Amino acid sequence: MSEPIAGLPEPEPIRVPDEDLDDLASTLARTIAEVRQHGVLLDRLGADADPLGYEEPESTEAEPESPASVFILAMGGAEYAAELAALANWVTHVLLPTYGREISSTRPWCSHWHEHQEAVARLHGLWLAWQQLTDAEAGLTGPSTWHRDHLDHTLLQLRAPDGPFAACTTSPARGREPGQERRVGGDRHDAGGHSASEDCISQVPSSLSVRPFAPQGEGLPHP
């Protein structure tokens, strides 16, 4: 508290009449009581979420079920067939004409790739990435990313000398699951009906609703 300035009289203390003090105390007590009542009321409202007893009716509209997975190996039946047909169209009309190269023992290919589960899985993943990374929202570097991170790796795995097509030019039934080959007459056939003496380079069957792809010369077409 500051010291009084010399030469100035000290201020007199403020005195409130006793009757005013009684009124002030009474008013303060009423205010405190009202605040407490309001607090009790708020507590009751918080405990009872719906004081009027109104319940919202349950929605009768069924929420659409989202697919468990977009990956083709998680599908079955008609859904798998439709997805495989769409994939075959992309492989036949986009992938092979642009990126198909000559076939050799060190770089095999099988146009019956749809009968090789590993090939279906890898090509489907490649197609999904293509759809995402060639979209305008992927930006200008999307296609380059698709080539580097997806296309190159997938083709290296599929067309490796020891990959899923390694035996297709000699015996398509070799290296498959037991029970996936059968004998017709004296010749051995796989589940797709290909003879062991036949080259496995043929067209995708019409059951997949894909137009036949016309190769240029032997093997896959040049870009």
Rank of each mutant, 00 (worst) to 15 (best):
T98Q: 12
G100L: 11
W113D: 08
W90D: 04
E34W: 04
H114N: 09
H114C: 03
E56P: 01
P64Y: 02
Y80R: 15
H112G: 13
V94E: 15
G100R: 12
M75H: 10
T92G: 06
R44Q: 14
Y80A: 13
L95R: 10
L95Y: 09
P97I: 03
T98D: 11
A49R: 15
L42M: 09
H114T: 09
G46E: 14
G100K: 08
E83K: 15
A85D: 08
V91T: 07
L95T: 04
D43P: 01
E115A: 11
N89I: 05
H93T: 07
H93A: 02
A47M: 07
A49M: 09
T106P: 00
D48P: 00
H38I: 05
P108C: 04
D43N: 13
H112N: 10
G77R: 04
T60L: 13
E55P: 01
V70G: 11
C110I: 03
E63V: 12
A85T: 12
H38T: 06
A74Y: 03
S104H: 02
D48Y: 02
P97Q: 03
G39P: 00
D50K: 08
D43M: 13
S111E: 10
W113S: 11
V91K: 04
V91G: 01
T92A: 15
H114D: 02
A62R: 11
S111Y: 01
L96Y: 06
R36Q: 12
P97H: 08
E58C: 00
H116V: 02
E61I: 14
N89P: 00
E102K: 10
W90G: 04
W109I: 04
V94N: 10
I72S: 10
E65Q: 15
